[in-house]
Write a protein that binds this DNA or RNA. Sequence first.
DNA 1: TTTAAAATTGTCATATAGTGGAATATTGAT
DNA 2: ATCAATATTCCACTATATGACAATTTTAAA
Lengths: 302, 302
Amino acid sequence: MEYGVTLRKIRKQKGITLKELADGICSISFLSKFERGDSDITLGLMTRILEKLMLSFDEFLYVHHDYQPSKLEIFFKSVNTAYMSRDTVQLEKLKNEEIKKWKRFGVETYHWNAMMIQVLGQILDTQFTHEELKENNIRLLSDYLFRVEVWGYYELALYNGTLLLLEPDMVIMLSRTAFQKSDRFKEYTKVKDAITAVLFNTIIYLLGPVNRFHEKFIYQKEIGEFISYLENLALSEDNLLERVHLLQLNGVYELRIGDKEEGIVKVEHAINILKELNSTKLANNMEQYLQQILYYQENPQL
Amino acid sequence: MEYGVTLRKIRKQKGITLKELADGICSISFLSKFERGDSDITLGLMTRILEKLMLSFDEFLYVHHDYQPSKLEIFFKSVNTAYMSRDTVQLEKLKNEEIKKWKRFGVETYHWNAMMIQVLGQILDTQFTHEELKENNIRLLSDYLFRVEVWGYYELALYNGTLLLLEPDMVIMLSRTAFQKSDRFKEYTKVKDAITAVLFNTIIYLLGPVNRFHEKFIYQKEIGEFISYLENLALSEDNLLERVHLLQLNGVYELRIGDKEEGIVKVEHAINILKELNSTKLANNMEQYLQQILYYQENPQL
DNA sequence: TTTAAAATTGTCATATAGTGGAATATTGAT
DNA sequence: ATCAATATTCCACTATATGACAATTTTAAA
């Protein structure tokens, strides 16, 4: 379906005539032609038209695609859904699609996409096939991330998906890079949320798996660094969820360095707030995580 | 500055060649021409190019405009800022800009914008000038809102800005309309947030000004209705801020219908959660609102 | 229903988006 | 520095986006 047809729908809704909308931008006859689907339109003109309608491009495209999210969002969402539901078959399918595009066009973007899926697949199943993707995958991918000068939503989502498979030192460097190189997007909600997610994941990763909580802890300084990044970022008072998570992480951090009582108090505080707000699932997840930590700390031999 | 130049920057960053990016979409030579700013590009081609780069239109434009939000966002933001800081001079200026565009193009959109600013200005200062805007402003504006079949971000923001000046019955009908007619945007964060804001404002409006809390309360049923909308909407567990606000509003509602103890408990609970999460300003505002209610309930003669 | 004004579409001219391939510039290995 | 390979630009050409204005349809008032 043509963009113009969507535009006409919206224009009619707003009770604006062709003449009024075209005035100062393009000719009436052309706008009519475009709206009937008989012509494409230049990006420059379209920008001015949407501006006049007080409409953002993304909102327009959302309507145009019959109220479906963009392909970009669908991609990350479907990968995430497949991973969360441990559906390796679906992951395989998604991976193959990306590999096909990679081979077809040679664009590395598709390569990274495939790698990300591969990495997720391997977490679920060590047998996850990877004929096309060699050993040095992760290396290539992190090279790319170091190389890019500005991280947008894509780079952050990509990194977030693969972070778990990297060495701690690499994660520390890349997460720093992520924070610095996405700096300019601080006002752009979607990207800001992605940065926040990266920082949270980094901290959880550096705390280590719960069954190693009795081992010596060496990332004290780095965790402090990333927590301070988070505090700067999510500083707006409205981000209550982020604040609850920070409270929890501060607690887990204290548990990790052996400050048991303090740690339990903080984590339970976070859990209680969630419960009070009826966010039961989140509360239960947090509760379970705490229980695991306590269990392993009492049975360090496991 | 040209769109193409921005595109080239991004492409280079990602280490993709002209050939790779153009392949399957357009010719290499044309892409080169576009990237040098020697040609505009068709919307259809641009869509496919951005898709290949895993980039949304809005993110691309955000980068293109040197990491500034779109004009649409700037408009609502600057109006809101001027209103919040009670800067009637700035409001006047913004209004005149919109009126100028309205007269220039005849597009009603600019008319509604001007009306919205007029309404806000009148709240701050009853002398706020309005040569151009007649008495029946509000009537025209609400006619428009009733007429439009699908409410997007623009309609919601517009309504939110003017709701306070409408009659209660009108607000009830329009807020219902808003909720129903923006239904299809439920997955689109920005619009969803706007719907949420409308519902909250509606409830607060229907509760009435605090110095009338002793009068008979007649919107019991409607408030219940809007709260249930909110609960359906913000049902995702992550929306902690919305959940805190709901808790507060439930409390205020009970205060309003005379259930004093219950009401105070709930509102204070909401306040406490905010305090525990260091959202001091939000907590203080809520506290102040509660104190006002209690004050007027004890001195109904004022 | 008639009629005049307003809104939209059709026709044709032209500017410019977009192509293919040759010419040039860049890159990277020896 | 030289050379081959690759990436980009230039140029002549074609397709199509866009404009001017006439023809038609729609709207709304009498």
